[in-house]
């Protein structure tokens, strides 16, 4: 049977449920908050606040979309088990990997759509106040979408190991904490023995490097060059490899799990 059609069916199911459950209403409310915030900034006059407005938009977009991705994906598998909707699914002639991957794609689709809606609302709000959109903004959107794939993969992996609330909490801790831990390692390394570099590299490699996908700092400030193609290629490779590793861990746990 065509695997792509199976994954598409599962992902569409997740998306349809999410839309009907009015998850995207949350996005609309967040978008409204963004527009209102932009209006508040307009009160002070946008002249000179462009960097701040863009920086704020990038931070809010990054934060909200990551939260939405974590909450959506972290609930997918545990809720299937809890609500007993899993049985009719696993009774079908599909492998458990297909099920996981299809759900993962659904989570990514929900995260991407939410992010793009927020982006559109933010762009609208900023353009009303005359903030110029630059090509690097498109790179920001593209890289952020790639980063959301990693976020979804981490969240899905954790959700197969623990309860939904624990998975969501741990996802927040890991995804937001990993960049702080990376910073800590870098600072510690500045005074550490160079021999410990491999050890530091292993710890850093295990952590999800989601912050690498965030070019908000460049997009918000002026005169930064576009991110080179080789970097985008490297990040795409990282996204694929890290997500595959996370999905493999999920599958290792889920494939023999008693339902």
């Amino acid at each position: 049977m065509n695997k792509i059609l199976i994954w598409r069916a599962l992902a569409r199911g997740v998306l349809l449920e999410s839309i009907r459950r009015k998850d995207l209403w949350v996005v609309a409310i967040l978008g409204f908050i963004i527009v209102c915030s932009a209006g508040a900034l307009g009160f002070f006059g946008m002249s000179g606040l462009e960097s701040f407005a863009k920086d704020l938009a990038a931070s809010v977009l990054g934060g909200f979309s990551t939260i939405l991705a974590i909450v959506t994906t972290g609930r997918l598998m545990p809720e299937e088990t809890k609500n007993r909707t899993l049985y009719p699914l696993v009774a079908r002639p599909i492998s458990r990997f297909d099920l996981l991957f299809g759900k993962f794609l659904g989570g990514v689709a929900v995260a991407w759509i939410s992010f793009l809606i927020l982006c559109a609302l933010t762009a609208l709000a900023l353009s009303i106040f005359g903030v110029k959109m630059e090509p690097i903004m498109l790179q920001y959107v593209m890289l952020k979408m790639m980063g959301l794939v990693v976020v979804c993969a981490v969240s899905l992996m954790l959700s197969t190991l623990m309860t939904p609330s624990a998975a969501v909490t741990m996802s927040f801790v890991i995804l937001f904490g990993s960049s702080m831990l990376s910073r800590g390692l870098l600072m510690a390394f500045s005074t550490a023995d160079p021999g410990v570099a491999p050890f530091y590299r292993v710890i850093n490699g295990v952590l999800p490097q989601v912050s690498l996908f965030d070019i908000g700092g460049r997009a918000a400030n002026t005169n930064w060059r576009l991110v080179p193609l080789w970097v985008i290629g490297a990040l795409a490779t990282y996204m694929v490899l890290y997500s595959a590793a996370m999905l493999s861990l999920s599958w290792a746990k889920f494939r023999r799990q008693a339902l």
């Binding site: 890289l143 910073r183 390692l185 870098l186 390394f189 500045s190 570099a197 530091y200 590299r201 850093n204 490699g205 490097q209 912050s211 690498l212 996908f213 965030d214 070019i215 700092g217 460049r218 400030n221 930064w224 991110v227 080179p228 970097v231 490297a234 990040l235 990282y238």
Partner: peptide, 23 residues
């Protein structure tokens, strides 16, 4: 800087990527 210069970074390619994506 918070993002370190290449000679003070143990991360190799990941560090290069960060220097290319962050301000």
């Amino acid at each position: 800087t918070v993002v370190p210069a290449a000679e003070r970074d143990f991360r190799g390619t990941l560090g290069d990527i960060e220097r290319a994506t962050r301000a």
